[in-house]
Computed example of a mutant assay.
Amino acid sequence: MGAGGLAAAAVAVLLLRGPETPAVPTAAAPTSATGADGKSLDDVDTMISRLAARLEKEPNDGEGFRMLGWSHVMTGHPERAIEPYKRALALLPNSALVHSGYAEALAGASGGKVSAAAKAEFERALAIDPKEPRARYFLALWQAQNGQQKEALEKWIALANSGSADAPWQVDVRRQLTEVSGKLGIDVSSRLKNPAPKVEGASAVTAPQLDPATVQAASALPESDRAAMVDQMVAGLVAKLKANPKDADRWVLLLRSRMVLKQPDQARSDLDLARKSLAGDSGALGKVNAAALELRVPGA
């Protein structure tokens, strides 16, 4: 796949994944897109429904149930993912991906809080695969949510140093490192062996997410169809921001999408609009400005 195709796949991942909190994806699924032949492509909900229908006829497909659960989480409905993941767990009890995926769904359904049940599933995932990054990430998040921010910071530093700079989970980890170290007044930059992950271009294709299957799914469409889908998804994001211009997370998502698609001029325009829209909300404005600096948006 060429750089343009990788960029399109990256934005599809970004927009399916939603704003940057990994346990609480909130972006809505696209309604439809138009393929190169002029026919309407199936929307995400239709594809998920087809997978669910197929699994009714193939009830022993553990990987299929994992993908169904994953699809619900990716499209902002973690509560719908819980039952498919339970089926997947019954069929694939030794899969770290299933345990961590189920735990992420539990966390998402709880508004981002890592509950005792989710923590137990992440721990089971690590018992199977001690390197499983999603489980390591969320177990540190549990610590941060339970008064152990310094301990969580150490876990995230170790996780950040355990993989390459362009590993799929680095953006989420670095975001937490920046936020928590800032709250604690601790400079951890000298302890990080890799530079902050870049988001521009093809090298950042997997940055927003923790499950590499995301990129495979986004890349499966023909390039022209994928580009059409991405255009519509970005347009949908813009429409949501027009309806609710106070949504800082979606402004960040839009800026990230523009930079991945190599649209710096449009990103700068979006940044100006975001600043106007969020004037008076220092917290939201700070989040957008920090993201713009990280993404190297012109004018940041």
Rank of each mutant, 00 (worst) to 15 (best):
E151P: 14
F122T: 01
A144Q: 07
R134L: 07
G101S: 01
A117H: 09
N161Q: 03
E123C: 06
Q148T: 08
P130A: 09
G163H: 01
H99C: 06
E104V: 03
N161M: 04
L159R: 09
F138N: 02
S110L: 14
A96W: 09
Q145T: 11
L126W: 09
H99G: 06
G112D: 13
A140F: 08
E154V: 11
Y102A: 00
Y137M: 08
S95N: 05
V98E: 07
K150A: 12
R136I: 07
F138K: 01
Q149F: 02
G163I: 00
L97C: 14
L106C: 01
A160D: 03
W142P: 10
R136G: 04
G111D: 15
W156H: 14
E151L: 14
V98K: 09
K155D: 15
E154C: 09
R134S: 06
A109L: 05
L153Y: 10
S110P: 10
Q148H: 13
E104F: 02
A144P: 05
A127Q: 04
L97E: 15
W142F: 14
E104T: 04
K131L: 12
L106I: 02
A103Y: 00
E154Y: 10
G147K: 07
Q149G: 03
A118I: 00
A125V: 05
G112F: 14
A103H: 00
A125C: 05
A107P: 11
V114Y: 11
S162Y: 01
K119A: 10
N94M: 10
I157P: 05
K119S: 11
V98T: 10
E154G: 10
K119E: 11
A105N: 03
W142V: 11
P133K: 05
S110I: 15
A116S: 14
A144E: 07
I157Y: 07
G112Y: 13
K119T: 10
K113Y: 15
L97T: 15
A109D: 06
L97H: 15
R136K: 08
A107D: 08
N94W: 10
I128Y: 01
